[in-house]
Simulated scan of single mutants.
Amino acid sequence: MKSFKYITLCATLATSLLFVQCKDEDDNVIINATCTDGILNGEETGIDCGGSACTPCGEVLDFSGTYIQEDQMGRPGINTIFGTTGFKDAFNVTVPSEMQAAFQNKFQTNLLTLNPAYTTNALGLNAEDFTTVLSNDVLWLAQSGVTTYLNGTEILTGRALSDDVIDVSLLLIFGGPDGSENPGLTSDGVPANDATFATTFPYLADPF
């Protein structure tokens, strides 16, 4: 057993309700908890955290109310590149099942505005097929095999933290059928993350 101080900010809802969790990377419940100046103190039990044991200082979280979707982020940068002024906000509040019908034509128009010479890309997709895939803005995830955005063999089977998804997007927009066209436009010039990823969930590097 060890005593520690640990509190993680999980999400902020439109109602300004803050969610926090009181388990560490080992998924241990905090017991004998006390709260001092917003800091949770207690002991680990080795039991998965759940229920009121996970709320800050024993408070009960209130999930009542009406919530609305404010943002959509399946694949990084898609709405930034294709969701231009005029429908970016509408895209953010549209559920994925309705996205293709509502936005594929708009995405295709913007793709051909960005690259008027576009024919097919390194995936062999013409403008209509490519924007059909992109306008359904969900991150695909293969249940087995390699998880990658694009590694030259597997395609859109998920996203590894080290995947350079912006370069992949630029390559598919500007690189042409073999990825060699417009070399000055197929990379953002940022080759890697600037901090080491963690080895435990959620694996993101600490801010600095």
Rank of each mutant, 00 (worst) to 15 (best):
E70L: 13
E70Q: 12
D71E: 12
D71G: 12
D71R: 14
Q72D: 11
M73A: 14
M73W: 15
G74R: 05
R75N: 11
P76H: 05
P76S: 08
G77C: 02
G77S: 10
I78W: 03
I78E: 06
N79E: 13
T80Q: 12
I81C: 01
G83W: 02
G83V: 00
T84P: 10
G86S: 04
G86E: 04
G86W: 03
G86H: 01
F87G: 09
F87V: 09
K88F: 07
D89R: 04
A90D: 14
N92C: 13
V95H: 11
V95N: 07
P96G: 02
S97W: 02
E98C: 11
E98W: 12
M99Q: 15
M99Y: 06
Q100C: 11
Q100R: 13
A102Q: 07
A102H: 09
F103W: 10
Q104I: 01
N105G: 09
N105R: 09
N105Y: 10
K106I: 11
F107M: 11
F107C: 00
Q108S: 12
L111V: 06
L111C: 03
L112K: 06
T113C: 03
L114G: 06
N115E: 07
A117K: 01
Y118V: 05
N121M: 06
N121D: 11
N121W: 02
N121C: 04
L123S: 07
L123Q: 00
L123K: 02
G124Q: 02
G124E: 05
G124H: 03
L125H: 00
L125G: 01
N126V: 11
N126F: 08
A127W: 05
A127M: 06
E128L: 14
E128R: 08
D129S: 09
D129G: 07
F130Y: 08
F130W: 08
F130T: 00
T131W: 00
T131I: 02
T132K: 15
T132E: 15
V133L: 14
V133W: 13
V133H: 11
L134I: 00
L134A: 01
S135G: 00
S135L: 01
D137W: 06
D137C: 05
V138T: 12
V138M: 15
L139Y: 09
L139K: 14
W140K: 10
L141F: 08
L141M: 08
L141W: 11
A142C: 03
A142Q: 00
A142V: 03
A142L: 00
Q143V: 08
Q143P: 09
Q143S: 09
Q143K: 10
S144K: 09
S144M: 07
S144Q: 07
S144N: 01
V146Q: 14
V146K: 15
T147F: 07
T147W: 08
T147Q: 14
L150A: 12
N151M: 07
G152S: 04
G152P: 00
T153C: 02
E154K: 09
E154A: 13
E154L: 06
I155L: 15
I155T: 14
T157I: 06
T157V: 04
G158V: 10
G158E: 03
R159H: 02
